[in-house]
Design a protein around this nucleic acid. Structure first.
Lengths: 267, 267
DNA sequence: TATTGTAAGTTTGTCGACAATACGATGATC
DNA sequence: GATCATCGTATTGTCGACAAACTTACAATA
């Protein structure tokens, strides 16, 4: 408060001086949720992984209370499933989920090019630079045959797209969808697989934006998402079938199609 | 398990007999979350309402633990905001939120007609019947000048659309968006207002579906969403400015545009 | 008179503990 | 030999309590 009223000069209005970035202390729950999300993204909590909350809480150095709160948040995002009295588990994605997620992405992402191009020139330049950086990261990862790094750059590329092309709400939604996409990768393939096409596809995105060609961007994105679904579903037979997985995956004849999502009953 | 293997006859395959609806006991957290969502939808927790968690927990007859977990879930859905050390509060929607929400809805809902029409005939009939019922509810509500009931029927109509036209994930997402739409109404207008156009607009949706005209449905939905944004934003000056509201609404010069959402940092 | 400093009160954030429940193993019976 | 029942264990779901932090009110000083 004291800082607020201390104007540097009589000319700057008090209002302007007051424009400070708000202090943003993340709550413990935020921290835990971030950490869990991170663990899901980088694979240290693979789909189907069942971990007791006491153990998890100990690892994170917090009590079970905040951990449970964070779990609820991730559950609402669809990343975790909480079967009653069976701890927490990372969601296992099914081929149906893959189609579903990509259908949603296909509604949103193709439009983002148009919205980015509608921004002022200075911002557009920033966006292009940022996206270009991610593409370079992807290239480097590809050379090193590092599928993990490639996936990370992929995530950041699309996150950037959503952040610049949309609102906070959209960015949040896309962030969740992207993590779910990553989960699809984990759920569908036993190991990561370097998709060679990915880099040129994304370079083309940047090109289209640089050329201010929204139509081309849209078409490219549609094609990319289609290709990704095909990539993911091309080997549906190799889906993991570990014991840990079975813990939550629906039984072969899926008796509880609704229960799996543990959805908040908002419907 | 025992029930599963008890076949009634040798002719019915064990598989068929086993197809029982899973027992779905809602956890306490589910119950609380539903109750809170309900309260937000029906307006008993108006935007900006600040309620202590001790008080709330007492009212709901539960301890603070589960209540806090439910709050985290609603927070992830964007319905609640949890300013640190200030209890929970229902989100106050801004004109920007209105545009944002409807932009997202406009990506999804127009497509739903096509997806519903792709379903088998028997299901299509069910959908039409259901949607028709909701339209009748809207008509009745309009006659009685009951804006609340009209809004409820509106919600159920679109919920049905999402439930039949999409996946579980999409339905869940739409459910949240619809509740947020309702919150927009609360945030924008002092009182409910009966929108006369709403009923014919929705009757037209049903007509288009009955005629199996996906294109018309798409166009109608786009027009409807456009109109709704205009309706909501036509009187941006009459936005509520109660004291309770101020508690969370950004200050006039919005110093913390990011903080307001209390987003899970997934970006 | 306005502003700042102080103190009290209230609320949240976190933790530990208890009890209920589901699961697994072992033993008994048909 | 297989199936069912019972017991023990481990884990969750819930609650109560403590401590820290924020807000508000009041008083003192410039």
């Amino acid at each position: 408060m004291s800082t607020r009223s201390s104007g540097l000069s009589g000319l700057t209005s008090a209002r302007q001086v007051g424009r400070l970035a708000p202090v943003r202390r993340a709550s413990t729950v935020d921290l835990i949720a971030d950490r869990l999300r991170e663990a899901v993204v980088d694979g240290s909590l693979p789909p189907g992984a069942a971990l007791g909350e006491a153990e998890l809480a100990f690892q994170l150095g917090v009590s079970r209370g905040p951990l449970r709160e964070a779990m609820q948040r991730l559950t609402a995002e669809g990343l975790l499933v909480i079967p009653r009295r069976r701890g927490l588990a990372v969601r296992t994605m099914t081929p149906e989920d893959v189609r579903d997620i990509h259908w949603l992405r296909a509604r949103i992402e193709p439009e983002l090019g148009r919205r980015i191009l509608a921004r002022p020139l200075a911002e557009r330049k920033t966006v292009l630079a940022e996206l270009g950086t991610e593409v370079k990261r992807m290239q480097r990862a590809l050379k090193k045959d590092d599928a993990r790094a490639l996936g990370d750059a992929y995530l950041d590329f699309h996150r950037g797209l959503a952040a610049w092309g949309g609102s906070i709400r959209l960015a949040r939604m896309m962030a969740t969808l992207l993590i779910e996409t990553r989960l699809c990768t984990f759920s569908m393939y036993e190991h990561f697989e370097v998709a060679v096409d990915l880099v040129p596809e994304h370079a083309a995105f940047v090109d289209a934006l640089a050329a201010e060609d929204a139509e081309r961007f849209t078409a490219l994105m549609r094609a990319h998402l289609d290709a990704e679904v095909r990539r993911l579903l091309s080997e549906p037979e190799t889906a993991k079938e570990d014991d840990a997985d079975r813990l939550l995956a629906e039984t072969p004849d899926e008796p509880q199609p609704l229960d799996r999502l543990d959805l908040p009953e908002g419907i």
